[in-house]
Amino acid sequence: MASDGVVVEIGKVTGSVGTTVEIPVYFRGVPSKGIANCDFVFRYDPNVLEIIGIDPGDIIVDPNPTKSFDTAIYPDRKIIVFLFAEDSGTGAYAITKDGVFAKIRATVKSSAPGYITFDEVGGFADNDLVEQKVSFIDGGVNVGNATPTKGATPTNTATPTK
């Protein structure tokens, strides 16, 4: 695992066909100046998982989280898009600690492993708008004895992609 920078880890949970599971997305290594904004994309298989919603985690402190935390689910493109932009203008609602960034709610549709993997990152910046190093650890849903650990090695991303 990367020793510096922010680590975004997609949790690994267990479920069975027809059940709804909650998959946490963790941030670790949050910089001392916090995270003022970030955007990134995960990939998944809508034939295996139906993403039914995404909720902000406990490290989102904006009293009205829909102003700073936004997501979009595109089953036709097989992606989930995340956007966080601190909304106070003063840094008061920045992410300042490690913990759960988001909770992905999904219904298991198939007995195949439900991988959720890193696809791309736009950027991560602290309260001074300084770009942060970030790496990703894939996860998803274990169905029966299947284990979604494909790509469990962190993917280092030093520069934003478009």
Score class of each variant (00 low, 15 high):
residue 146 A to R: 12
residue 66 T to C: 11
residue 59 I to C: 05
residue 117 T to W: 07
residue 84 F to Q: 03
residue 100 V to D: 10
residue 117 T to C: 15
residue 114 G to V: 13
residue 143 V to Y: 11
residue 134 V to H: 02
residue 76 D to M: 12
residue 136 F to Y: 04
residue 144 G to R: 12
residue 130 V to T: 07
residue 51 I to M: 02
residue 74 Y to T: 00
residue 24 P to D: 03
residue 32 S to V: 08
residue 50 E to Y: 09
residue 151 G to D: 09
residue 96 T to Q: 03
residue 137 I to A: 14
residue 151 G to A: 12
residue 109 K to Q: 07
residue 89 G to H: 01
residue 137 I to L: 13
residue 120 E to T: 02
residue 78 K to P: 01
residue 34 G to N: 06
residue 39 D to F: 01
residue 110 S to K: 15
residue 59 I to L: 07
residue 14 T to S: 08
residue 155 T to Q: 14
residue 92 A to G: 12
residue 9 E to M: 02
residue 105 R to W: 05
residue 159 T to Q: 14
residue 160 P to V: 12
residue 37 N to M: 01
residue 15 G to W: 14
residue 86 E to W: 00
residue 160 P to G: 12
residue 101 F to M: 14
residue 9 E to H: 07
residue 78 K to N: 03
residue 26 Y to T: 07
residue 34 G to P: 02
residue 23 I to V: 05
residue 153 T to M: 06
residue 5 G to V: 06
residue 136 F to A: 13
residue 2 A to V: 10
residue 60 I to K: 15
residue 67 K to R: 09
residue 147 T to M: 07
residue 29 G to D: 04
residue 137 I to R: 12
residue 5 G to Y: 10
residue 148 P to E: 03
residue 81 V to S: 00
residue 115 Y to N: 06
residue 115 Y to C: 06
residue 67 K to C: 06
residue 15 G to D: 14
residue 78 K to E: 15
residue 156 N to Y: 11
residue 145 N to H: 13
residue 52 I to S: 08
residue 41 V to P: 00
residue 154 P to V: 12
residue 39 D to V: 00
residue 29 G to N: 08
residue 96 T to D: 08
residue 71 T to P: 00
residue 74 Y to Q: 00
residue 125 A to D: 01
residue 24 P to F: 10
residue 8 V to N: 15
residue 78 K to V: 03
residue 115 Y to V: 11
residue 81 V to F: 01
residue 90 T to C: 11
residue 128 D to Q: 06
residue 38 C to Y: 01
residue 97 K to D: 14
residue 147 T to K: 12
residue 161 T to N: 13
residue 29 G to T: 12
residue 148 P to I: 03
residue 13 V to L: 04
residue 135 S to K: 07
residue 69 F to R: 06
residue 98 D to C: 06
residue 123 G to R: 00
residue 5 G to N: 07
residue 86 E to A: 01
residue 93 Y to L: 11
residue 30 V to E: 03
residue 102 A to L: 14
residue 4 D to P: 07
residue 150 K to L: 13
residue 94 A to P: 02
residue 149 T to F: 11
residue 79 I to C: 02
residue 110 S to H: 12
residue 144 G to L: 12
residue 145 N to D: 09
residue 139 G to T: 02
residue 78 K to M: 04
residue 158 A to Q: 13
residue 128 D to L: 04
residue 159 T to W: 14
residue 28 R to C: 15
residue 12 K to Y: 09
residue 12 K to H: 10
residue 13 V to Q: 03
residue 83 L to Y: 00
residue 140 G to C: 09
residue 90 T to M: 09
residue 86 E to R: 00
residue 109 K to F: 15
residue 56 P to G: 10
residue 126 D to T: 03
residue 63 P to N: 15
residue 145 N to W: 12
residue 148 P to V: 04
residue 81 V to G: 02
residue 156 N to P: 13
residue 5 G to D: 14
residue 115 Y to D: 07
residue 27 F to R: 00
residue 69 F to S: 07
residue 97 K to W: 15
residue 90 T to H: 08
residue 147 T to F: 09
residue 71 T to L: 05
residue 108 V to S: 12
residue 106 A to Q: 05
residue 25 V to N: 09
residue 157 T to D: 11
residue 53 G to P: 11
residue 45 D to H: 07
residue 51 I to K: 08
residue 23 I to W: 15
residue 59 I to N: 08
residue 133 K to C: 04
residue 150 K to Q: 13
residue 118 F to Q: 10
residue 47 N to L: 05
residue 118 F to N: 10
residue 87 D to L: 15
residue 142 N to A: 12
residue 20 T to D: 03
residue 53 G to S: 06
residue 138 D to A: 11
residue 60 I to L: 11
residue 88 S to Y: 13
residue 72 A to T: 00
residue 27 F to G: 10
residue 151 G to V: 14
residue 50 E to G: 08
residue 147 T to C: 13
residue 74 Y to D: 00
residue 85 A to K: 02
residue 60 I to Q: 12
residue 58 D to H: 13
residue 39 D to A: 01
residue 130 V to W: 09
residue 79 I to G: 02
residue 71 T to D: 09
residue 66 T to K: 05
residue 96 T to F: 10
residue 75 P to C: 04
residue 12 K to E: 06
residue 44 Y to A: 11
residue 100 V to W: 04
residue 14 T to D: 13
residue 118 F to D: 13
residue 109 K to T: 10
residue 86 E to M: 01
residue 129 L to T: 02
residue 79 I to P: 00
residue 91 G to T: 04
residue 68 S to W: 08
residue 88 S to A: 06
residue 27 F to Q: 12
residue 123 G to W: 00
residue 5 G to K: 11
residue 66 T to R: 13
residue 65 P to S: 14
residue 9 E to N: 07
residue 52 I to E: 12
residue 161 T to Q: 12
residue 47 N to Q: 04
residue 102 A to V: 05
residue 91 G to Q: 04
residue 127 N to D: 06
residue 13 V to E: 06
residue 9 E to K: 09
residue 23 I to F: 05
residue 22 E to Q: 11
residue 120 E to S: 04
residue 136 F to P: 08
residue 135 S to E: 04
residue 44 Y to E: 14
residue 82 F to A: 01
residue 33 K to V: 03
residue 7 V to N: 05
residue 7 V to K: 10
residue 67 K to W: 15
residue 131 E to V: 02
residue 80 I to F: 04
residue 51 I to V: 06
residue 85 A to R: 01
residue 70 D to R: 01
residue 160 P to D: 12
residue 101 F to E: 03
residue 12 K to W: 10
residue 134 V to K: 03
residue 144 G to P: 12
residue 101 F to S: 06
residue 135 S to T: 08
residue 7 V to T: 08
residue 39 D to K: 01
residue 139 G to W: 10
residue 57 G to K: 14
residue 47 N to K: 05
residue 79 I to L: 03
residue 119 D to E: 03
residue 88 S to T: 04
residue 80 I to Y: 10
residue 18 G to N: 07
residue 156 N to G: 08
residue 26 Y to I: 02
residue 32 S to R: 09
residue 158 A to G: 13
residue 18 G to Q: 08
residue 52 I to M: 11
residue 28 R to A: 12
residue 14 T to A: 11
residue 82 F to I: 02
residue 91 G to R: 08
residue 89 G to A: 05
residue 65 P to R: 13
residue 133 K to M: 02
residue 99 G to E: 12
residue 134 V to F: 01
